[in-house]
Amino acid sequence: MAVVGIVIGAAVVLLVIGIVVTYNGLVRLRNQMQNAWSQIDVQLKRRHDLIPNLIETVKGYASHERGTLEAVTNARNMAQGAVGKGVGAQSKAEGALSGALMGLFAVAEAYPDLKANQNFLALQEELTSTENKIAFSRQFYNDSVLGYNNKTQMFPSNILANMFSFSEGEFFEIEVPKEREVPKVSF
């Protein structure tokens, strides 16, 4: 009898340890995913902040490119408005902004004085890098979502995930018009 008791006791202890480890794993993955999301947010905000500066600089050299400048300003305002309205809406607005920026830099190509401006060059480096950082944080976020979703769907961790309502994470895809594959701006 004592042996059976020990075996059952051991099994229960193992089960409890298993549950704790799995639960903590789920929480850790969810936190990682949420941290990764806040990273994207930081970079998106940085991009929104940089754009008025860029518009001012470009205006000084290419004031009659009003259409392009306005498109960027509008896209920026739309993107700012989409903050907090869910991953889907935000992806779409940010994609439109990336497209508008590409248009602006394509236009800048025709103004040699602008291209030589130190301020413009510094802003360009900042925007290129911010664009890269958005892409990299999105990459890391999506990897985290994949890891987390796998865990919530696979047996046995899915039982716990259902029990404590760990909902699935949503992927963040930026749909840039025309250039889908390339998240980086080529000036």
């Binding site: 970079q43 510094a122 480096e125 900042e126 890098s129 890269n132 950082k133 990299f136 990459q139 890391f140």
Partner: peptide, 13 residues
């Protein structure tokens, strides 16, 4: 700034 940005990009990635 460029080197700093690149390091930060890789830190994020």
């Amino acid at each position: 700034p460029r080197l700093y940005n690149i390091v930060e990009e890789m830190k994020i990635a």
